[in-house]
C-alpha cells in the first residue's frame, strides 16, 4: 500500500484531521474565518492568480476536498514573503501552513511533478545539506539542466548575460563546480539530519496510530 493510500484509508472521514496531524501548523486551519485578507495580500496571487488561494484551500480542507488540495500547484506559488501572516486577523501562520501542505503533498507523491518550484525546493535542500552550505553554481546548473542537456544549454544561454555579469563582479565562481565552500563536519551534519528525519517520521506515525 502506498503512503498516500494508507493516509487516505486512515483519515477517510476527516481530511481536516489528517491535515491537523500530518502537516506542520495544520492544527491552525480550523481557525480561518474566511475573510480573504491572505489572498488579497499575496503577491503571486495578485500577479498571476493561484488556482486556489489560501483561504479557499482552508475551506476546501474542511470540506474534505483531499485530492484537489494535495494535487494543486497553488501552495508552490508561495514566495515566503510573510505578508499573509502579519495581516491575518486570526494570526494563522499561513506561510508555514502553505509550506506544510506543499511538503505533505510532496511526501505523498501527489504534488504536480513538473511544478518548477517543487523541483527547486528539493534541489535547494539537497544542495545545502549535502556539504552543509549552498553551492550557488551547482544549484543554478541543477535547475537549468533539469529537463536534460539540450534544454539546459538553451536555459543557460538565456541566463548568459546574468551569469557573465555576476562572474565579472566576482559574485559567481566557475570553480565552485569542483567542490566549493563546505562545512568541515559533514559527517556530523549527515548523522544529525538522519536522526532528525527518523524522529520526525516516528512522531507522525505515532499520531496516525493514536
Amino acid at each position: 500500500m502506498s503512503a498516500n493510500t494508507a493516509m487516505a484509508e486512515k483519515y477517510r472521514n476527516s481530511f481536516l484531521k489528517e491535515i491537523e496531524e500530518q502537516v506542520e501548523m495544520g492544527d491552525w486551519v480550523k481557525m480561518c474565518m474566511q475573510c480573504g485578507v491572505c489572498s488579497g495580500s499575496c503577491p503571486t496571487n495578485f500577479q498571476s492568480a493561484w488556482e486556489h488561494p489560501p483561504q479557499e484551500l482552508f475551506m476546501m480542507i474542511r470540506a474534505g476536498k483531499r485530492e484537489e488540495v494535495l494535487t494543486t500547484s497553488s501552495m508552490w506559488n508561495c514566495t515566503s514573503c510573510y505578508n499573509c501572516i502579519v495581516r491575518c486577523p486570526r494570526k494563522l501562520p499561513i506561510t508555514h501552513i502553505m509550506h506544510g501542505i506543499a511538503e505533505y503533498a510532496h511526501r505523498l507523491g501527489l504534488a504536480p511533478k513538473m511544478q518548477p518550484t517543487r523541483f527547486f525546493s528539493g534541489l535547494f535542500w539537497k544542495n545545502a545539506t549535502q556539504t552543509g552550505r549552498v553551492n550557488e553554481l551547482k544549484l543554478s546548473m541543477g535547475l537549468y539542466f533539469r529537463n536534460g542537456f539540450s534544454a539546459g544549454v538553451k536555459e543557460g544561454m538565456k541566463m548568459k548575460d546574468v551569469a557573465l555579469g555576476l562572474m565579472k563582479a566576482k559574485r559567481l565562481n566557475p570553480f565552485e563546480i569542483l567542490g566549493g565552500h563546505k562545512c568541515r563536519d559533514q559527517k556530523g551534519i549527515q548523522a544529525m539530519l538522519k536522526k532528525a528525519y527518523e524522529i520526525e517520521r516516528s512522531r507522525k506515525a505515532a499520531k496516525m496510530a493514536g
Partner: peptide, 10 residues
Amino acid sequence: IGYAEAGELP
C-alpha cells in the same frame, strides 16, 4: 525555499 524536503525538525 527548502520546505519540500526539509520538514520541520531537520
